[in-house]
Design a protein around this nucleic acid. Structure first.
Lengths: 105, 105
DNA sequence: GTACTATATGCGCATAAGCGCATAAGGTCA
DNA sequence: TGACCTTATGCGCTTATGCGCATATAGTAC
């Protein structure tokens, strides 16, 4: 694999690699949400939610659509959920290793 | 989803979200490799390869095993490849959107 | 022991990411 | 028009990442 190709992939993963953005994407799996709704998910300033959404949009993970005063965000590439599933698998594997180590002690 | 749970997932994604680490994981899909081999993949200092591998190991994505002077790294959770596949899908979707926009112009 | 190879770590520095605050931009409604 | 609501952006600040260099650690071979 070429470095440039790896960088393209890394940039998409980077767009997901933040707790707030994980929460946002997770919330959007249930359907489209406006910023005001997404704003409730985390205890941070609204301006940051907006910025995180902009990053997800730039990465091609979500899209937005204005409806009156509100802007609704939509999960454009739901396959991203597979990445989450994998993250969960990694966590489980870690837990297993921890258990084994504990038994070894 | 709770913030803490999102953070755990984000941390694993973060471990993958770097071009060099993408290259490393990709190389390990073909089988275990020692650091000296992995070192060839990118044009950066050996100390950094070592650090990137340490990050992957800490995230539970790879494991290591010493054999004489060499340390071999092993892809512990191959499901991580699904995350890559998804990244590729996102890239393809972006390309499609670009095409559509171009046609619209 | 010394000399050598392979890998990891400490350090300082440059850059990027994330944050809150203030405010701009876009839209509604009277 | 002005008052109001929702979302995005500019700014400065703090912290996190990534890097190379030098060096430490671990193992081999003599």
């Amino acid at each position: 694999m070429k470095y440039e190709q790896a960088k393209v992939r890394a940039d998409i993963l980077k767009a997901l690699a933040h707790p707030v953005r994980v929460l946002l994407v997770n919330a959007l799996t249930d359907g489209d949400r406006c910023v005001c709704e997404l704003n409730e998910l985390a205890d941070i300033d609204q301006s940051n939610i907006s910025r995180h959404l902009a990053m997800l949009k730039k990465a091609g993970i979500v899209s937005d659509r204005r409806n009156g005063m509100k802007v609704f965000y939509h999960l454009q590439t739901p396959c991203i959920l597979k990445a989450f599933e994998c993250a969960v698998e990694v966590v489980r594997a870690e837990a297993k290793i921890r258990d084994t180590n504990l038994k070894a002690v």
